[in-house]
């Protein structure tokens, strides 16, 4: 199927598809990078291993999503060009994943909220009308199902652990909850993808996401914040947080300092 036939379906809206693929790939790139910032400093050796492993999965998925994005664009750029030479306003990741690590609790809560969405999204994408998208999703969903199980289990354990761990997890949830809504809101790109049969509408994931997240948070004895306010501006690139530029300064430094070198 997809790997042997690189031609997109004839009716596919290429510009919108490129945007969509950047959204998927930038989410995994930015979160993978954030997790890699923990390298060697996690709270326990098992967490060092798991965090590096998750980051590795996400960077591998980035290679696939941005590889397909570059191919779709057809402008001679590679996945590395997209990752290492775009400026912040061309990034299409959710605001949630670019939020700084904070303490381990905040890092974990960020992963938990994202992983639950990521799993649902990839499950739907395995049925995508674009076989290339379906193939990437089929590979990624196996890894992400594990990420989601693991982050949910840890949220339960630390939410329902000591008074301190409970307090830290609640603070992390309160801090990050306003960044969750962006995952579930539709825009013109999403509608074009849904109409082309390539991807589900994010709003269609809202109910199952909310149900799975609330179930876990209840087990974790954590309280879901009230209010429906959601920050926007990541996935359309309209207004990223200040944090993304600093992350890119680090991540892109070698490619920027030595343009054209091969590594």
């Amino acid at each position: 199927m997809s790997a042997t036939d690189p031609r997109p379906p004839a009716s596919q809206p290429a510009a919108e598809l490129f945007e969509f693929l950047c959204r998927m790939g930038d989410n995994t790139l930015v979160l993978g990078h954030r997790l890699s910032e923990w390298c060697g400093t996690a709270p326990a050796l098992e967490e060092d291993i798991a965090t590096a492993n998750t980051a590795l999965d996400l960077i591998g998925q980035t290679q696939m999503w941005l590889g397909l994005a570059a191919e779709t664009e057809g402008a001679g750029r590679s996945a590395d060009d997209l990752a290492m030479t775009r400026d912040a306003w061309d990034f299409r990741n959710l605001l949630l994943v670019e939020q700084p690590n904070g303490d381990f609790g905040r890092t974990l809560m960020r992963s938990f909220l994202f992983d639950a969405w990521h799993r649902l999204m990839l499950e739907r994408l395995t049925l995508s009308g674009d076989p290339r998208v379906a193939a990437i999703a089929a590979k990624a969903v196996k890894e992400v199902a594990y990420h989601a199980d693991r982050s949910a289990e840890l949220v339960v354990a630390l939410g329902d652990g000591t008074e301190e761990s409970h307090g830290r997890m609640q603070a992390a949830l309160d801090r990050l909850w306003p960044y969750a809504g962006e995952m579930l809101a539709d825009d013109a790109i999403d509608r074009a993808m849904a109409e082309a049969g390539i991807a589900p509408l994010p709003s269609a994931l809202a109910d199952p996401w909310e149900e799975s997240v609330r179930t876990t948070l209840t087990r974790a004895t954590l309280t879901v914040p009230e209010g429906a306010f959601a920050h926007r501006g990541g996935k359309d690139g309209a207004r990223h947080s200040e944090h993304l530029g600093h992350m890119l300064t680090t991540m892109q430094w070698l490619q920027r300092a030595y343009p054209g070198a091969r590594w």
Binding site: L29, G32, H33, S36, E37, C39, G40, T41, D48, I49, A52, N53, A55, L56, I59, G60, T62, Q63, L66, A79, D80, A83, M84, T250, M251, W253, L254, Q255, A261, W263
Partner: peptide
């Protein structure tokens, strides 16, 4: 030994190098 490599995992020049370094640190 993870630390001197962690010093570069965030600045690895390509996606592949980043993935390899993460695998090594793991």
């Amino acid at each position: 030994g993870q630390l001197p490599e962690g010093n570069w995992v965030t600045r690895a020049p390509t996606l592949e190098r980043k993935a390899i370094l993460l695998a090594k640190v793991q």
